[in-house]
Amino acid sequence: MNVFIELLNAEFLIASVRLATPIILASIGATICDRSGIVNIGMEGMMLMGAFFAAWAAWKFANPWFGVLVGMLAGGLFALFHAWATVSLHLNHVVSGAVINILGFGITRYLLELFFGHPGTSEIIPHSLAEYRFAIPLLSRIPLLGPVLFNRTPIVYMMYVVVILFVWITRKTRLGLHIKAAGEHPIVLETLGISVKKIRYIAVILSGILCGLGGAYLSIENGNSFSEGMTAGRGFIALGANIAGGWTVVGSLIASFFFGMVDALALRIQVLGVFRVPSEIFLIFPYVAALLAVAGLVRKSRAPRALGEDFQIERSGT
């Protein structure tokens, strides 16, 4: 029991925040996308693109802030492809997502050789965002929570803004209402004179931008270079978090944080070396936790009604 008390300290929570941040960003992206009725399983690919271009721009222009921008842009553009394929071309959403993942891996590997001349890893970026870590004056003095939440690096703060922004968007704004309607009753929305197509485009691109930001976090804030496959399945975990969180922003946040915590815990228990078992046992940990979360929490939640369904209106004369 002492072991667990030793584990549950501020450092552990900080590690959880670090590991959870990219998952939170991507899972909120997934939530927005799914709420509009478009399934997004291509987040792994979008995150990879974001991570790659962020690292490239941060290296090329020696400015990590530029990297963040370019990473978000790359994620958004890649998502635009998803939106175009699913909304305009009526391609099966899962197919398009699978294509995005395949292309994400292929293109980043290809461009790595083209831009940096060698596969594997990019050059080390001259300045990483970790240098811009700052404590928010008053808030960081709060016991326990202060150092955990308010003495962090820029993208973590951006993540807070994203969470608040998207809670606000989904709950209070017209856009949020339209996004939800597009996922529940697209025909009703269309008869009200609002273009389902446009709303879905917006939602998908937003999710891509968030994935790009999550990817950028991995390559230029948490790390200082891009390496092949560095997202390591976080896009899929985010998808799980979104569903475990019941397709809501807050639910996604909680589920993602939970996954981050489990990940951090698995590493820490190993360091303490209290259990002498093969290391693989610890690696199963996060997935079992995710499974229990999904099985336990999803009971009451429900997917958007029109999720994954194609929406098409035949207009005469055009």
Binding site: A15, L19, G223, M230, A232, A264, Q270, G273, S279, L283
Partner: peptide, 16 residues
């Protein structure tokens, strides 16, 4: 002390 991360590609995990 040692940690086995179970992967050869995940920078973030190596850092943690």
């Amino acid at each position: 002390l040692s940690v086995v991360t179970g992967t050869f590609t995940d920078q973030a995990k190596g850092k943690e």
